[in-house]
Design a protein around this nucleic acid. Structure first.
Lengths: 393, 393
DNA sequence: TCCAAGTTCTACAACGTTGCAAACAAGCCT
DNA sequence: AGGCTTGTTTGCAACGTTGTAGAACTTGGA
């Protein structure tokens, strides 16, 4: 009887058995030491620990997962890390997970709806303990049709159905309210000829884009509630969410509304493209046109001029999501829960009022208007408005 | 005798056994179908496939890994996704891995050397089949001291020792040569008062920063080889690699060399900070000062003016790295290999010559100088210099 | 001295999968 | 018909880990 050949050329990592033999105890005792089981004689524990160190033992997740049913791995499925917003989100999740001794598997769904369906179906293999999923193209009805998820799932993003599938939760930023705030800010600064620039139809063409729709709705509501005619504003649709789309879309918007004096962009990348277009045309920001973005990417303080934007609390988003999914993994099987995380409105130069355009503009400290909720405006420090002479971080 | 309780409240995913019972065959036959073993009667195969679809069977990676010793998971350890360069890299790896049906676990080492040591020691648990590791703070000697890695490893980045640990390979961009090219480009454009801006000492303070040192060396060599005195140039050290550091560092550089007319930045983020500083001071780019970066982040075409930079071929980097690590995982145990991947010099407005400063500048098509190697300058299309009216991607 | 009540340690089985070897079936040749 | 080859299917064992149950040891009180 030949033992099965080792799968690869390199030698296998040490096992509990190797430690046990070296320490002269049973495998289970080593396991007990590794798992901090209390009833181990201090002397034995020490001897085992020495053996562990000597052979360099590390537990094998695969075997633990097989035995216990959980691996400490969670899949994070995002559209693409090439959007600064998502790479920021990913970083927050990875850090938050590391703090909880969890491991994040990053999966991207650039392929569109098909790739997103794969996520929902649990991929082709059973891998981690759960999924954190930010769908972009899946439409409400498709999600609503599912009666349960294939594994513990927390959705992030927007425009999900009222009734989530069993086994899932939902953490979101109130996009409509945030966009309402952004628009109201422009109006408060005296802007009257407003445009909205965003992607409504998904680039994959199947359905309206969730966040885009909500942000546009907030824009329109702000106009209405401030006594302006929503029909007087220009809603400029763009194809996707990248800088290029903002650059191109702004040209189109200007054609329809040459005297626009305020633009609400559906994200910062679009706003950056908008700024580039305005610069090319010699329009001054904020003097001639005010521009506001959404996401507060690391670029925002460094655009020219620095960009006012909506800043979602990504850290709290990550923390909340991990809490929820941890509960699901631990066995909670109650009804879907929906949690809102806060955002703030960060005002920088691109929406300032009564300023001459400067040949230059730069990251500066401003007193940001911060609002957790549409109706509760307060002031708080803006983490991004550091004094740059102070060598931050 | 009670069977061990299921680990969580939710019911377990279907197993081979469930499929086998439904199809009326043995577990092994189902396994054979799943793994495309050829000697299965078409009729049986069909029946089994129907059963698989019916119960929604998906193989459990944990059990496969335990049995076969490999999981198809690879850890990617990067400093932080908040640097655009690294999030781009991560995206490339994730996509390339998905194409090969591999799974990427992203780990970040923001903590500095300590976190990087953890990576080398293989983390606390045996998880995937290998590691792709971009160290930032670990110094040469520490790596040189290791005689073998704890698992198949491919290093990316720079300044690794000549003699890598057994079991590892190394894929790099020739930073010194690239920086030489960037500097030569400025010189060719007629710039004579040059400055270099980069982080040399690691922010964690222990050792010289690898890439920074190499890029500075290329800068100095370019001066020498073009008959300029390296001592006449200003080497401005900055603390870290972020936009802020460029913003602050440029002020310091100007104090030491007020009439600087060309700045080589160690990465694009620094260059963006430099541009912001110059804008603030009313210096025109490129008329008064030319600025060149390194990385070709997605920001580069959208800065003001658009930024010339070194563009590493990230896609090929990812492909090469995955090839190497796949060989290691498959059992290759030969000596460490080092592979260079190409880069190109992308020229945009920030280093143009004989142009009046425009009130605006924007992403434009230029004829890029592209060089794979210092001595082989050729012309090729610049993927980032798309015609933005064409609604790219 | 013996037993009860800890405390510490161990044997066994099972998690889901696949490599191996062998069993079985079918077709073909002598 | 018997044996040989080829094609198809199966049983068994093992990967490394942990929960359960119980064995072995220690302590202390009667």
């Amino acid at each position: 009887m030949t033992p099965p050949a080792p799968p690869t050329g390199r030698h296998r990592p040490p096992r509990l058995r190797d430690v046990a033999e070296l320490a002269g105890v049973s495998i289970k005792t080593v396991s007990n030491v590794v798992n901090d089981y209390p009833h181990v004689k201090p002397e034995t524990r020490e001897r085992v620990q020495a053996a562990i160190a000597q052979v360099g033992y590390r537990p094998q997740v695969a075997a633990q997962q097989l035995r216990t049913g959980s691996s400490g791995m969670i899949t994070l499925a995002l559209p693409s890390l090439t959007f600064t917003y998502f790479s920021d989100i990913a970083q927050e999740f990875i850090e938050a997970a590391q703090r909880r001794r969890l491991t994040i598997i990053v999966h991207t769904t650039e392929g569109g709806p098909e790739a997103e369906r794969t996520v929902l179906q649990g991929f082709e293999r059973v891998l981690g303990d759960g999924v954190i999923f930010n769908p972009l193209h899946l439409w409400e009805e498709e999600l609503a049709r599912m009666d349960h998820t294939s594994q513990p799932t927390v959705f992030i993003g927007e425009h999900l159905p009222e009734a989530l599938p069993r086994g899932s939760d939902y953490v979101r930023i109130d996009n409509e309210a945030a966009s309402f705030d952004a628009t109201s800010h422009l109006i408060a600064q005296g802007r009257t000829r407003l445009g909205f620039l965003g992607a409504i139809t998904s680039p994959h063409g199947e359905q309206p884009h969730s966040s885009g729709t909500l942000r546009r709705a907030g824009f329109k509501r702000a106009l209405r509630e401030h006594g302006m005619d929503p029909a007087s504003a220009v809603l400029q649709e763009v194809r996707d969410w990248h800088r290029q789309d903002g650059f191109v879309g702004m040209a189109a918007l200007l054609e329809r509304m040459p005297d626009v004096d305020g633009v609400v962009c559906a994200n910062d990348d679009l706003a950056i493209g908008v700024l580039a277009r305005l610069r090319r045309l010699g329009r001054r920001v904020p003097d001639d046109v005010a521009v506001i973005g959404y996401d507060d990417t690391p670029d925002a303080p460094f655009t020219s001029p620095s960009l006012s934007t909506i800043s979602p609390d990504k850290q709290q988003l990550a923390a909340t999501v991990l809490d929820l999914i941890a509960e699901r993994i631990a066995g909670y099987d109650g009804p879907p829960r929906t949690v809102d995380v806060p955002y703030t409105l960060v005002t920088r130069d691109s929406t300032a009022v009564g300023r001459r355009a400067q040949t230059t503009s730069e990251p500066t400290s401003v007193d940001p208007i911060v609002s957790d909720r549409p109706d509760s405006e307060t002031t708080a420090p803006d983490p991004s408005a550091v004094d740059l002479e102070e060598l931050p971080r």
